[in-house]
Design a protein around this nucleic acid. Sequence first.
RNA 1: UGGGAUGUAGCCAAGCCGGUAAGGCACAGGACUUUGACUCCUGCAUCUCGCUGGUUCGAGUCCAGCCAUCCCAGCCA
Length: 569
Amino acid sequence: MADDIRNGEILDTEASESASNFIFDFVNEDIESGKVNKDAITTRFPPEPNGYLHIGHAKALCIDFLTAQKFNGRCNLRYDDTNPIKENVEYAESMQEDIKWLGFNWDGMYYASDYFDTMYECAVRLIKNNLAYVCDLSADEIREYRGTLTEPGKESPYRNRSVEENLDLLARMKAGEFAEGTRVLRAKIDMASPNINMRDPVVYRIMRVEHYRIGSKWCIYPMYDFAHPIEDMIENVTHSLCSLEYEDHRPLYDWVVNNCGLPARPRQIEFARLNLSYTMMSKRKLLQLVNEAIVAGWDDPRMPTLSGLRRRGYTPAAVRDFCERIGVAKTNSMVDYALLEHCVREDLNAGAPRMMAVLRPLKVIIDNYPEGQVEWFDVENNPENPDMGTRKVPFSREIFIEQDDFMENPPNKYFRLYPGNEVRLKNTYFIKCNEVVKDGAGNIIELHCSYDPASKGGNSPDGRKVKGTLHWVSAAHAINADIRLYDHLFTESDPGAAEDLHSIINPDSLEVLTGCKLEPNLALTKPGDHYQFLRMGYFCTDKDSTPDRLVFNRTVGLKDSWVKEVKKG
RNA sequence: UGGGAUGUAGCCAAGCCGGUAAGGCACAGGACUUUGACUCCUGCAUCUCGCUGGUUCGAGUCCAGCCAUCCCAGCCA
C-alpha cells in the first residue's frame, strides 16, 4: 500500500473482530475447498465516475474493503469507466477524496479504460471460437428480436456470419468505418434463454464520444456485462461483490469468465444495496436535485452524498459504524434514518467539545449584578472526556438565553425560566425572573432577573435545588453567527417511490438563523470543526464560514424528551 | 409453471449440522443528572419466525404446496 494514498485519519477498524456475514462464509468456503488461495483474496470497489459517492456507496465500500481486510487480502479502487457520455474527471476525483475520507486505502487504482486492448483481444477470441458476431440490426430491431419476459427471442439474421467476416467487421468498427448505432458485437449464447441477459447480449457498441481520460482513442466501447468480468480477471479479483440487481447477470458473468480465454476465475456475490428512509440513492434523481438547484450542489448538507454528509458534520467513524450496524444480507430493506443519527450522536458525544451558543436570543438583564463586572468561569470542554480540559467563559450583567427557555405562562412540567421561577445558568449562578419587558406589539423584548451571589458555581449553600439549567452567552462578549438547521429533504419516508420529486420536497428542509450569539471561544473555529452546542445539538463549521462571518450547520439535534412531553399535551 | 431472489418484532438483523427466538435502532417506564443530553436499570416476538400441511419425541431451522414483495425485456452501470 503506497503511503501517499493513506490519509491516516482513521480508524480502529478491526474487521477481523466484526461479526461474520454470508459473504465471509462464501469466501471461507472457497478457501476451504481449495478454489482460491487463502493469501490471495482480492476484492474491488468499482464505481462509474458518473456522480458523487453516497451513503449507499459507503456500505459497498465497507463490504469490499472489510472483506479484503478480514482475509488479509487486497481491495482495488477501479473506475468502471466504459460509458464516456456519463463520466467526467470531477466525479472521478471526488470519489478518491470521499474514499480516503472514510478511511479506506486502496491497494491498486485502476481504470477499465486501461483494459480496452485486452477486452478487444477477448472479443476477437470469442469471434474465433464462434461465440460472438457482429449484428447489423438496429437497436429497435434488437429489442424486438429479444422477445419478452414470457416469450423466447428470435435469432438475428446476422448470427451465422463467418468468423472471417466477423473479424473483419469488428476491426472496421474499431477503425471507425461505421456510424454510431449501425452495428454492435454480440455474444452468441441463447436467444431462447429464460434469462434475458443471455439472449445474445451486446458486447461492444460504437460511440463517437470523447472519453474523459483516454480521449478519442476508441470509438467502440465494451458493455458492462462483458467488461466487468474481464476487469476482475485482469486484477485477479477473487470475489466480485455487487448488488442484488446483478444476480440475473451472474450466468453471463460466468460465461465471460469461462469463454474469454483468461485464466482467473472470480466469483460474483450479490448483496442488498442500502435504502435509507427519507432520502434516496438514485444517482439520476440526485443529479436532478443538483441540476434543478433544489439543493445547492452535490455537497449540500441535505444530500445523502458523502460530501454532503461530511459538510453536514457526519464523521467517517459514524458512517462506518452505521454500515457495520446495518449488516450485510440479501433482503431488500429500508433502514431507519434514526439509526444513522444515533451513530453520529454517539461518536460526537464522545469527541466533540461543548460550547454555548444561543440560536434564538432573548436578552436577560441581571439587575443586581454589578455593572461593568466580568467574571471568567472555568467550563469543562466535554464531561464525557475530562482529558479535553476546560476553557474560560465570560459572564456579565447582560446575557442572552434561548427564547424557548422562557415562557410567561408555562405548561405543566416546564422547569425553565418563567416569572418568579429560579433556574441555574450553566456553571455560574441561580437567577430568578422578576420582570418581563414587551414592545408595543406584545413581543417579549427582554427579561429582568436577579441573581444569587451565594450560588456561584451553580449550587446554593443552603441546599436549594433548581430543576432547570440553561445555557447562556454574555451579551458584551458574544460573537454573531449564521446557523443552518436541516430537516429531511423529502416529506415521504420512501421518496424513491414517488413519481414526481417536486411534490414531495420538504419546503422546510433548510432554516437559516442569523444573529445567533456564540461564546467568544468559537471565534477561532475552522471549517470542518465539530461541536456540541450545549442543549442544542451537534454542529459543524461550514466551508462558507470566515472569521468575519461564522457559519455553522446543525449535524443533528440532541435527543429531546421535552418536545415529546409537549406533544403529548 | 418466463427467469432470478427474498420473506424472523415499528426498522435493521443473528439464528451453522433440527432441541425449545442474539444484538442494535425506535418506543415506553424508572434511576441519575450543573446539557429535559449522556449513562444506568426495566419492558418490548411466549396460539412466535409469510401461510398451510408433512416428517420428527421435538422445526424458525428438513420436505411439499401456496401467498406476498423485489429485480430482469439499455447499443446504462
